Amino acid sequence: MTRGAGPGTFELLARLPAQILALVRAEYENAKREITAKVKRAGIGLLAIIVALFFLFFAISAFVAAAIAGLAVVWPVWLSALVVGFGLILLAAAAILAGVALIKRGVPVPEQTIDRIEEDLNAFADVRFNQSAHAPRESPSGRMPQAGEKGNWR
Rank of each mutant, 00 (worst) to 15 (best):
A72D: 09
L90A: 12
G70V: 06
D120E: 13
V107S: 13
Y28C: 14
I68Y: 05
A42H: 04
A31Q: 04
G70D: 09
F55G: 04
K40I: 07
I50F: 13
D115N: 07
A69V: 03
G85N: 03
R116F: 00
L102K: 12
G99N: 11
R105S: 06
P110F: 00
F124D: 06
L91T: 03
A93T: 14
K104H: 05
E111I: 09
I49Q: 14
L88T: 02
A42E: 08
F55D: 02
A26G: 08
G70N: 11
L97K: 14
V84S: 00
G43D: 09
V84W: 01
N30G: 03
Q131K: 11
F57Y: 15
V83P: 00
P108A: 03
A42L: 07
I114R: 09
A81W: 01
K32W: 03
S80E: 08
G85L: 07
A125L: 08
G106T: 06
Y28A: 15
A48Q: 15
W78T: 12
G99T: 13
I114P: 02
R25H: 12
V127C: 11
F63Q: 04
L90Y: 08
G43H: 07
A66G: 06
V64F: 02
F55R: 00
Y28H: 15
P76E: 14
L56G: 11
Q112S: 09
E27K: 15
V39G: 04
A123T: 11
L56T: 10
T113F: 00
I103H: 05
D115Y: 04
K40N: 12
L88Q: 05
V51D: 09
A59T: 13
A81T: 01
S61I: 03
E29Q: 14
Q131I: 15
A101L: 08
A94M: 15
L56Q: 15
K32G: 01
T113L: 00
V74K: 15
V77R: 14
S80R: 07
R41L: 13
R128T: 05
L121Q: 13
G106S: 10
I117R: 04
Q131P: 04
